[in-house]
């Protein structure tokens, strides 16, 4: 059952990724990207990580799709992506080398669910055996995120706040900056 689910989800994921690459319409791209996130969320559920799936579904499918659509709505011209037909060899080589390195790197990752891998043997085993007794929280993910790794979470919240401040500083002013149309000179502004 799990294998079937994984297979269906992964095949759809691949189809979605290729569709995002192939489509030239930015609106369709945004919607497909939301669907891609939803499929990833489904995969996380199959992998028994409901907390991560929750985040992926809410952020990836919900918020970021809406933000992309709003961004598209605020751009008047340019709903079509312009791509040159000229083939470039440099980016292809970089992609191939990078992909090769990543695949090479996966050989050192412990197998999924491997009990005696270093992270499962030491720190995870401690959380599982002692976590509930020390924090009193049944959901171990919350215990780890909020208590054991409180510093990390503080950092994450600060990152969210910093991102918000950055966007406000860049786009927050009332005066609207008009993006120049192609072919116009600076004198028009």
């Amino acid at each position: 059952m799990s294998l079937m689910l994984n297979l269906v989800l992964l095949v759809f994921l691949l189809v979605m990724a290729i569709a995002v690459l192939k489509t030239k319409h930015l609106f369709a791209m945004a919607m497909l990207f939301g669907l891609y996130s939803l499929l990833v969320a489904g995969l996380f559920v199959v992998l028994d990580a409901p907390d991560v799936a929750f985040t992926e579904a809410a952020v990836g499918t919900g918020i970021s799709t809406v933000l992309m659509l709003v961004t598209l709505a605020s751009i008047k011209d340019g709903h079509e992506a312009v791509s040159s037909t000229k083939r470039k060899i440099g980016p292809l080589i970089i992609c191939l080398v990078m992909g090769g390195l990543l695949i090479f790197g996966t050989h050192d990752i412990a197998k999924l669910g491997e009990i005696h891998s270093p992270p499962n043997d030491q720190v995870a085993a401690y959380y599982i055996t002692q976590g509930q007794a020390e924090t009193g929280v049944p959901n171990l993910v919350t215990a780890v995120l909020a208590s054991y790794r409180g510093f990390d979470t503080l950092g994450e919240v600060t990152v969210v706040l910093t991102a918000g401040i950055g966007v406000l500083l860049l786009l927050g002013q009332r005066r609207k900056i008009h993006v120049k149309k192609r072919g116009q000179t600076h004198d028009d502004q």
């Binding site: 709505a73 605020s74 991102a163 918000g164 786009l171």
Partner: peptide, 19 residues
């Protein structure tokens, strides 16, 4: 509180630029 406020702020800031 922080995440909710920042997400809404992002949306408001973005959508203000829509004609």
């Amino acid at each position: 509180i922080t995440v909710a406020a920042v997400m809404i702020l992002l949306f408001f800031t973005f959508s203000r630029r829509v004609d």
